[in-house]
Design a protein around this nucleic acid. Structure first.
Lengths: 193, 193
DNA sequence: AGTGAACTTGACCCCCTGGTCCCGAACGCT
DNA sequence: AGCGTTCGGGACCAGGGGGTCAAGTTCACT
C-alpha cells in the first residue's frame, strides 16, 4: 500500500543508461539524469540507491541487453563469417555512424573505472568471459560444419574478435569512419579461413 | 632577469602526464597534480595555462614520445613480424603487467573526451594517421623483401594493427592477463602471412 | 471517511573543483 | 648594494557536485 511511483523505473533506468553511455560516469551529473528522466534526485535515490548503484544497475542492464542481442545476431546467419560480419556491422553502426559515437558502455567503463573499481572490474570481466564463450561456441559450430578449419583455436580467436570489437569502438571515437572500419573488419575476419 | 623557476617545466610536465595517464582528465584534480609535481597551482597556471592547456601539452608530449619509440622498435628488428611482435609486447607490458593498467593515454583520451572536444579529437586523429603511416611503411618494406605477400593491403592492415593495439589496451583494463593477450596477438599477426 | 504507508518536491548542506589574486621572497643586472 | 622583475605561497572566490531531510501529497485498505 501507499502511494505508487509516478514514473516507470525501467524507463528511467534506460534513460539514465543512455546518459552514462554518452557521458561517462563522472561527467554525468545527477542534474543531467534528473533532466533526462524527469525524476527528482530524492526519488532516484530512494529507488536505486546512490549514483554508483544506479550506474551499476544501468551497466548490468546494458550487458544483459547486449548479450541477448549478440545471441540473436549470431544465430541469424547460417555462416559464421556472415554472423560475425553482422556483429561488427552493428558495432560500426553504433560507434561511427550515429551522432558523435558514444561507443560501447562496457569499453567506456573499462577505460574510465576499470582500473580503480574492483566491483565494476569484476562485472566487466565476467561479461567479457560470457561474450568470449558465445563467440567461441559459434566458431566451434562452424568448425563442425567445415566452414572454419580445425587448426583454428576457437577460444583464442573468440578473444581476438572481442578485442577487435574493442578496437572498433575506440577507432570510432578516434575518428575512423565507417568505411575504414569496414576495411579493418575484412582484414580481421580473414583469421577465420 | 628576475627570479628563475624553482622547478623544471619538463619534469613537471612529465609528472602531470603520468597523472592524467592513470586518472584521466576529469578525475585528475589540480590538487593531484600539485601534489605529484610539487608545483603550486599558480605556478602551473602561469607556465602552462589552464588545466585543459596543460592536458593538451601533456598529450602532445605523450604522442611524440610514443611515435618516436615506435619508430625505434619497428626499425630494431629485421623481420616485420618480429617488429610488430615487439610493438605488441610493449603495449601488453604497459597495459596488463604493470600496476593496475593505465593503458594508453591516447585511448583513454579518445574514450573520455574524443566525442566532445573537437580540438582533442583532431589531435588524436592526426596522431593515429601518423602511426598508421608508420605501420604501413614497415609492411611495405616487408613486402619488398618478400616477407609479406603482395596481396596484403598495407594501409588497411596497418589500420587493423592499430585497432589491435586499441583492443589490447581495453583488454588490459577489462582484466585480460598478459598471457591471453599474447595469444590474441598471435592470432592477429597471422594476417601478415 | 479516515488512516497510514509510500512517494514527490524543493530547499538545504558541505565539500571539492578550477581559477584568481596579492604579497612577500629570491634572483640578475648594473 | 640596490633595483626591477619574476616567482612562490596560500588565502580566497564562485560554482557545481553528490547526498539528505522535512513537509506536503497521493493512493490502498479498512
Amino acid at each position: 500500500m501507499g502511494r505508487p511511483k509516478e514514473f516507470d523505473p525501467d524507463v528511467a533506468l534506460s534513460a539514465a543508461m543512455e546518459k552514462f553511455w554518452e557521458g561517462g560516469f563522472e561527467a554525468t551529473s545527477l542534474a543531467d539524469i534528473t533532466a533526462s528522466t524527469g525524476v527528482q534526485k530524492a526519488s532516484l535515490y530512494a529507488t536505486y540507491g546512490d549514483k554508483r548503484q544506479l550506474f551499476l544497475t544501468a551497466l548490468s542492464r546494458y550487458q544483459d541487453d547486449g548479450l541477448e542481442r549478440a545471441k540473436v545476431v549470431l544465430a541469424a546467419h547460417t555462416s559464421a563469417r556472415a554472423a560475425f560480419e553482422a556483429v561488427f556491422a552493428w558495432m560500426i553502426d553504433e560507434c561511427a555512424s550515429k551522432d558523435r559515437s558514444r561507443g560501447c558502455l562496457c569499453v567506456n567503463t573499462a577505460v574510465e573505472l576499470g582500473p580503480r573499481d574492483p566491483e565494476i572490474s569484476a562485472m566487466l570481466q565476467a561479461h567479457a568471459r560470457r561474450v568470449v564463450t558465445l563467440f567461441a561456441e559459434r566458431i566451434e559450430e562452424a568448425q563442425r560444419q567445415g566452414e572454419v578449419p580445425e587448426r583454428v583455436d576457437a577460444r583464442a580467436t573468440a578473444r581476438f574478435l572481442l578485442l577487435t570489437v574493442y578496437g572498433i569502438t575506440v577507432g570510432g571515437k578516434t575518428g575512423f569512419g565507417a568505411r575504414k572500419l569496414d576495411e579493418v573488419v575484412r582484414v580481421a575476419l580473414s583469421v577465420l579461413s
